[in-house]
Nucleic acid binder design. Structure first.
Lengths: 244, 244
DNA sequence: CCATTTACTGTCGATGTGACAGTAATATAC
DNA sequence: GTATATTACTGTCACATCGACAGTAAATGG
């Protein structure tokens, strides 16, 4: 806080809350995007979000409210965390608007989006954004990139992956989450060993799941652990170093 | 963004930028605190910070400006990153004020603080805040806790520790950073091995440092690596689990 | 020259990791 | 019912890494 007794009034800003909501649909990592109806960037894809609704609304509560409006999902089944705040002066042509971005992870939603608040909301594969086929409004591309990166690294050290699954899941399904988000192939047998060895990560429910074919798989639920010890490390990409 | 064509005006907020500046002085982790001169919380210790100076100031630039005002350190020698945004409705009794918190790491500053902008700024050992001997204004205790936790975990995966040292340092000094921030004792021989094996973490300058006694130590500088592979893991605390 | 101090190197057993062989339990084909 | 495909899971083995600690190297001070 600036402590001088100045007759100086600090500037007043508008603040929005934007959401990067990730989910897994048909083994594809997808993000919820809305089509903007008004200028600026009318017709362009953008992250869902909105202004702080009133003077007394908490930031986290505002994020949850927006999430509810877009997905009507109960908060217990999903994960939400603050990603960062973006405040470049020219990020919004309407004037100085700060946005606090949140990252949300949800289990696969069956319906694209129903008669909710959002007009043209739709799930979009993240690849289409990362590759540039889908362009985002404002600095939302930057926010989106940060969100994907955050999700990827958090899978290593936190039980975040379980939030992509429902309440119960098989180890193979959990492996699918890692493979999809990281875009790698993992050895299924080593994955079994490592995942079960991490204390508090997953615990068996006792039930089985019988799929169309094959041996039934044991079901698991998320355990109490908040962090993974030891972590599940992401295999390193093609390291083309060590050559003079 | 809320897309409806409403005659509704979003609320306007004031935004501050607060800093958690950490440094190592005489092998003690310290944080820069200022004594508040005006209400609310007059006479109480608080994190340095201030309002966004004008409509066109970037968030990151504002953080750097505040840092400059408090420490007059050139930006190249230090690290600064956004920590998070705190926006509980009642966090400031004057009204709705959002704060974007930044974490800064600086090499040991010799002088406490000179004739800078800050009136009563002083380095304070983080222990005195963590233990509750020093009370902080607003929700600054929460911000401070988050900052220390962030610094501790970032030492594992990033070359952040080198920012506590100057441009050149010995491996023993680097180890001191880890030991102080983590508050643990590390085996010096294993530390040597691990640190040197991490590609791009540190590189030798060629020079030696001759201290008062003992064999001279080789000097190193920070390497190009942005992340540590493999990471330096923090030894786990006394795990009193695994007992029925 | 010898003790002391600090810096650095080597070794060894326990543990974790990746690669891959092998076993178990279901459904379906014939 | 047997064969076979499919999915789920278990075991093994060579190798890398880690923590603990012995040992060597290079300076200073008596």
């Amino acid at each position: 806080m600036r402590e001088r007794e100045e007759p100086w009034e600090p500037p007043l800003l508008m603040v929005t809350v934007d959401l990067v909501i990730l989910t897994l649909r048909a083994s594809v990592l997808q993000v919820l995007l809305v089509e903007r109806g008004i200028e600026p960037f009318a017709g362009c894809q953008a992250l869902p979000g909105g202004f702080l609704s009133d003077e007394k609304e908490d930031l986290h509560a505002a994020a949850l409210r927006e999430l509810q409006e877009e997905t009507n999902l109960d908060a217990s089944r999903l994960h939400i965390e603050q990603l960062g705040t973006y405040g470049a002066p020219e990020r919004d042509p309407r004037g100085r608007i700060l946005t606090v971005a949140y990252l949300a992870i949800a289990p696969g939603l069956p319906e694209p989006v129903a008669g909710t608040d959002a007009s043209g909301a739709a799930w979009t594969p993240v690849d289409r954004v990362l590759s540039g086929q889908v362009r985002l409004a404002f600095d939302h591309r930057q926010i989106f990139d940060d969100a994907v990166e955050r999700a990827r690294t958090k899978l290593e050290h936190s039980p975040l992956a379980t939030k992509f699954c429902g309440g119960e899941f098989t180890i193979a399904e959990l492996q699918g989450v890692y493979e999809t988000v990281w875009d790698v192939k993992l050895d299924e047998r080593n994955f079994y060993r490592k995942v079960q060895r991490i204390p508090g990560f997953i615990e068996p429910t006792g039930a089985d799941r019988r799929a169309a074919k094959g041996r039934p798989a044991r079901m698991f639920r998320a355990g109490p652990a908040k962090a993974l010890h030891p972590p599940l490390t992401r295999p390193e990409g093609p390291h083309a170093e060590e050559e003079s």
